[in-house]
Simulated scan of single mutants.
Amino acid sequence: MRISITGKICFILLVIFSLVLISTTLYQAFRERELVLKLGTEHVSALLQNYRNGLDLISNSHQPEQLTHYQQTLAEQKNVLRVKWIRTQGDDFFGSVSADNLPSDEQEKLALQGQTTQLTTSHNGKTQIVTIIPYYLPTQSISDAKPVAAIRMEYSLDKQLDMVEQHILISAIMLSTIFSGVLLMTLSITRKHIVLRLQNLRQAIDDVVDFDDTSTRLPVVHNDEIDQVNESFNQLMTHLSVKLPDNK
């Protein structure tokens, strides 16, 4: 099966565009995801810092009853899924300890020993940042004191990642539109300046073969490679028009 010049050009451009689109999409997805993670982490750090400042005020004013209200206010912040106040059994500095405040996993137990944990999790299409930090009283020295509690925050990245997917989709549509325009322009130029001129050359050769017509001349306008072939054809026809009568 023969493939025309136009078909070959279309195939080459399609391969190039596919590679560019895939590489650009992957790079953009990676960069935007990294940016979302960075901004999300910074937002979580800011929220936790404000939370610790509020806890310092509560501990200094000796009003532990404000803790629940303050925690609810923080949980209502945008993209915050959950805020947990983690304490050890027998600690009554911030009031009585309930079962909801006790550590439920190894990371929460480590936070009560002074270790900070921050990780990004994805489950069932849901992505979130989980941060667990120890909390020290304002009067304590972190270097030699044991945390009196820990704070766990779960922060959703779903909305931000959905926006990333929308941006990538829009970019892909824009690139496809631009490519379609470039492809149509390329095909139009290829047909006008290459395909039609080659067809004219072929038709002139067929006329010589079928009808011994050596009077055909092809235009030489652009002085490109095809015009050089046309010039050679014209010279051949001039030569044949002189030689053929002698052979008869």
Rank of each mutant, 00 (worst) to 15 (best):
S4V: 02
K8P: 02
F11Y: 14
L14I: 12
S23W: 02
S23Q: 13
L26Y: 07
A29T: 15
R33S: 15
V36Q: 06
E42T: 00
H43T: 15
L47R: 04
L48G: 03
Q49W: 07
Q49I: 01
L55N: 01
L55Y: 00
D56M: 00
L67N: 01
Q77K: 11
N79F: 05
R87G: 00
Q89Y: 11
S98L: 01
L102T: 15
P103M: 12
E106W: 07
K109Y: 08
Q115F: 10
T117Y: 14
T117I: 15
T120K: 05
K126L: 10
Y136W: 14
Q140Y: 12
S141I: 12
I142D: 04
I142N: 06
D144T: 13
A145S: 15
A149C: 13
A150F: 10
R152F: 07
K159D: 14
L161M: 12
I168N: 03
L169I: 06
A172Y: 03
A172Q: 13
I173K: 14
F179Y: 14
S180K: 03
M185H: 11
I189W: 05
R191H: 05
H193G: 02
L196H: 05
L196I: 08
L196R: 11
L196F: 02
R197K: 08
D207Q: 12
V209N: 06
V209Q: 08
F211I: 11
D213T: 04
S215Q: 15
R217C: 04
L218T: 04
Q228V: 01
E231H: 09
S232F: 03
F233D: 11
L236P: 06
L236W: 03
L244T: 13
D246E: 10
